[in-house]
Amino acid sequence: MENQPMNQRPPKTWLVESILVTLFCCLPFGIAGIVNAAKVESRFYAKDVEGAQRASSEAGKWTKIGFFIGIAGIAIYFILMILGVAAGFLAS
């Protein structure tokens, strides 16, 4: 069966999510996501659908890693701040 990628959307590129991760959480992982988004596009339009799928999951992986590191960082920050406030109360 002949695949006709031209009439379909490429697999999820995670481009938008990667840009958001770049701007809000951690730049390096966001950039890894953007590079993989480019790979998804180029492979898909070179009719390498399987390779595009692989790049898509790779892009998703980096984006999610960046996202969760950002979330974890914020959570740790909040915990430290609450501890700090509590320590301040105890000391006063």
């Binding site: 959307r9 840009i19 950039i31 953007i34 596009e41 180029s42 339009y45």
Partner: peptide, 21 residues
């Protein structure tokens, strides 16, 4: 899809990377 390919395709993504860096 054509619109998407031109604005969110490979070339566009590398342009975005260049802009960010």
């Amino acid at each position: 899809l054509q619109f998407r390919k031109s604005l969110y395709g490979t070339t566009a993504i590398f342009l975005i990377l260049t802009i960010i860096i």
